[in-house]
């Protein structure tokens, strides 16, 4: 076994009295793309929120480079190198594109690297440079998703967690976003990806987990799951038959 960059061990998460995550364990190797897939309400978003400290696990442990972050607050988690692009982008829409990016570099680990990060963000997303003085709220859906990702990488994360980055985007933008995720990964950013676009996600994932009602149902390599008849029947086939 290699060194796990991120390790979730036997985590239980409850909203009030309702348990939504049951004894989930996943691990993310450095430099890889790990996909977390499954139906709506399976607990994918909750798991990301638990890792980033927005909610805290009732039981279990989360380790990052061997250090526990189970009890850390979100502002502390981002400062040790885990950036979370939440579902729905959650941009500051009354702030300009540049202001959003500046806040992305708010963690102390990122501030000295601001100029360099901004250049990287603008070279990955040239459209943001052209729109840097515009309010984030005035961007198109695809541009918003780009800004959300750009803002997250301003923090110089070791791991980037993306929650449904393709949600609500046109097919062309979906393709662009997946290409970007791939490109970021080539720049040594480890990616933990939550997606409903299961086919696309499994295609780029090294390792994948299928969550079902708060439990890990199947796990394995991305290609492996893509070929798995059970996965095809339950998730991918279902999506195709809808079209």
């Amino acid at each position: 076994m290699g060194n796990h960059l991120l390790e979730v061990k036997g985590v239980d998460v409850l909203y009030g009295d309702v348990q939504v995550i049951w004894d989930v364990s996943i691990h993310v190797e450095e430099g890889t793309i790990v996909a977390l897939v499954g139906a709506n309400g399976a607990g994918k978003t909750t798991l990301l929120k638990t890792i980033s400290g927005i909610i805290h696990a009732k039981r279990g442990e989360i380790l990052f480079s061997g250090k526990s972050l189970t009890r850390l607050k979100p502002q502390e988690v981002v400062d040790i190198g885990i950036s979370h692009v939440p579902e729905g982008r959650r941009l500051f829409s009354n702030l300009t594109v540049l202001e959003n990016l500046k806040l992305g570099a708010y963690p102390s680990r990122a501030r000295p690297l601001f100029a360099e990060s901004l250049e990287r963000a603008f070279s990955l997303f040239p459209v943001l440079k052209a729109r840097k003085g515009q309010k984030a709220g005035s961007l198109s859906g695809g541009e918003r998703q780009m800004l959300a990702i750009a803002r997250a990488i301003m923090a110089h994360p070791d791991i980037l967690m993306l929650d449904e980055p393709s949600l609500g985007l046109s097919p062309i933008f979906v393709k662009t976003i997946f290409e970007l995720i791939y490109a970021l990964n080539k720049q040594k950013v480890t990616i933990l990806l939550v997606e409903q676009n299961i086919h696309q996600a499994l295609k780029i994932a090294y390792q994948a987990y299928v969550l079902k009602t708060g439990k890990i149902a199947i796990s394995g390599g991305g290609d492996e799951l893509l070929a798995d008849p059970e996965v095809q029947k339950a998730y991918i086939g279902e999506r195709w038959s809808k079209r």
């Binding site: 980033s52 927005i54 979100p74 502002q75 981002v78 500051f92 806040l103 963690p107 102390s108 990122a110």
Partner: peptide, 24 residues
């Protein structure tokens, strides 16, 4: 100022602001 921007950001979306590393 950066902290001024942080205040504006937090006014808009506190949870998202904490994900940027802003202490509420």
């Amino acid at each position: 100022t950066l902290i001024g921007m942080a205040v504006r950001a937090a006014s808009e979306d506190m949870e998202s602001a904490t994900l940027m590393g802003i202490n509420p």
